[in-house]
Design a protein around this nucleic acid. Structure first.
Length: 129
RNA sequence: AGAGUAGAUUGGAUGAUCGCUGGUUCGGUUUACCGGACUGGAGGAAAGUCCGAGCUCCAUAGGGCAGGAUGGUUGCUAACGGCAACUGGGGGUGACCCUAAGGAAAGUGCCACAGAAAGUAUACCGCCCUGGGGAAUAAGCUUAUGUGCCAUUCCCCGGAGUAAGGGUGAAAAGGUGAGGUAAGAGCUCACCAGUUUUCCGGGUGACCGGAAAAGCUUGGCAAACCCCAUCCGGAGCAAGACCAAAUAGGAGAACACUAAGAGUGACCCGCUCGAUGUUCUCGGGUAGUGUCGCUUGAGGCAGCAGGCAACUGUUGUCCCAGAUUAAUGAUCAUCAUUCCCUUUUGGGAAACCUUAAUGGGAAAACAGGACUCGGCUUAUAGAUCUACUCUGACA
RNA sequence: CGGGGCGUGGCGCAGUCUGGAAGCGUAUCUGAAUGGGGUUCAGAGGGUCGGAGGUUCAAAUCCUCUCGCCCCGA
């Protein structure tokens, strides 16, 4: 099913495509620990991504930003950028998959385009496999 | 014009698309979601957590003793270690700035090196007087005799006085002058500086101004111990209150018994509760994307009045974040601010100066609520305003 | 929210309590020794004592404020 068709179906069932509700977030410490144990890790320049299948039928995102990244303004900005990327590109990701993104320390000031380019490379590669 | 001092304000704006989150409401459906509409959604420091309070709980906290904090005065305040005004001291040409600023004649302690001595002043050198011994010398007297006496000078040993002087040191015991003395010394006097006491005047007060007396002259350090005055019970929203099912323990009261232990996060006294057993009554510990606490408050804004001011009173008006893996974002467009480049216009011989416009590009800080307030401190691109001072020039 | 610790040559530390010349090890450089290197020996250089202010005759040390780092408890 192509993205355009998903949007059509979504409109028919009254669902928003680019929303990002609470169901799509990983919010429990237990879940995080489980994904850390079982998931497959992919490292890139600024992020470490952990992927793990789940049984809920939805794609879920969790973000880990430690204190060493910077003060709360920098941490919040990185989280917002990653959330924005997930929100706009989640229809290209496989179903029933949990995804935790860990932000490395000492990263430079990122724009949205930088995040987009880095993560798109990553997931296009996986799609080919 | 330049340099500077003090204080205040602001911390980009609008729109579109896609999202996040609180509230109200409507519909679907049904007790949990979905959708629609309307509406609210970070700061001057939200930060650091350095003080002070509210609020909550802990036998409502009484006494003692530790410990801690504060330290000019008056006022403001719910309170403060905060603020305002004033006083003393210090700095600056000045606007102005800094100031833990009670007590050193309660006690203890410390003051390196140097120096005689670093605190009940001492007595090493020096100065002066004097006892004894020795040496030298001119005159006089004397004698067998430079033998003795006397005088002067020097040296050695001892006694008494003195604090004027002594390359030091951060600091040396009031300073200058005169008298006085064997030599000296506030020993005495004059002037000056300081201290204490008393009196007069001003001020609510810190304190200020003036007068008199006492020779009184007493080093510094209490951000050394300490003394004095005032204040402080402890813990903190992870405080604290509540909740469905299953499983099975618990709680309260009375009686008996025990006096161990616990409540008390400095300790002691005091106070309160009581291990265990029996009987009766009640109905829930744990758990959790749980609920409440959770945002209306010593609240914001505007006007008027009082006060030098901090601030207070009063009237009107407004409701302005409540997340919990933790919400305010992303993209685009336009405008405004600053800077750079290009071209054009005006002046000029040129270098260049300057006004406006076109096009292109770049920059925009410090920083994100987590129970709530009042302060303090720290970070901060750029922009704006007010008052004042000094220097230079001109009138 | 509460509590504690650290900051001194390039690196690791002492000195701070009780104020009085800033030191130790290692590293660096120079020389000696060796055919050369290492080890060893001798010598030298290198410090705003995290920052600012204050007290004091005098501050790494005492006091106040502040910056950064680390740890612990609920």
């Amino acid at each position: 099913m192509r993205p355009a068709e998903i949007r059509v179906y979504a409109c028919l069932y009254g669902m928003k495509v680019y929303s990002f509700g609470k169901d799509e977030r990983i919010r429990k410490r237990k879940d995080f620990l489980k994904i850390y144990q079982d998931g497959a890790r992919i490292s890139s320049k600024n992020f470490i991504t952990i992927l793990s299948p789940n049984q809920t039928g939805t794609r879920r995102l969790g973000i880990t930003v430690t204190k060493s990244v910077g003060n709360s303004v920098k941490r919040n900005r990185v989280k917002r950028l990653l959330r924005e990327f997930f929100r706009l590109n989640k229809d290209k990701l496989p179903d029933s998959q949990d995804m935790v993104i860990i932000v490395k320390k000492d990263i430079p000031f990122l724009k949205y385009q930088d995040v987009c380019a880095e993560l798109k490379d990553l997931f296009l590669e996986r799609a080919d496999i």
